[in-house]
Amino acid sequence: MHLVYPAVLAALLFSVGVYGVLARRNVVLVLMSVELMLNAVNLNLVAFDAWLRDSLHAGQALTLFTITVAAAEIGLGLAIVLLVFRTRGTADIDRLTALGDPNEDAPESAPEAAVQNDRAVA
């Protein structure tokens, strides 16, 4: 099989994952899109391993490791999401702007309330 097929599929899947990370509002959906990106990388690794056929089988090994790390990451990520949800009451990335510079002009009440919540909590 031509190497281009899996390589292009991986590239496209990766881009879809990028879109999802940047465009979705719910944090869990963002995590899902990160999983897509990781899977694209896995596909790439497996395809190149099949192409290169090295004795170390580095591609497949790394794929296994990537899968493991991804699982760990999503576990921790969801824990953080739950914590955030508990304290802020929302799982929207848009509203988690406590680290931003406060803007006097923009009439955004939620981030300011979030800022005050943050200060109260911290």
Partner: peptide, 10 residues
Amino acid sequence: QNGNAQAYLS
């Protein structure tokens, strides 16, 4: 500096 992580990432 607006605090939106997606903007930073983009």
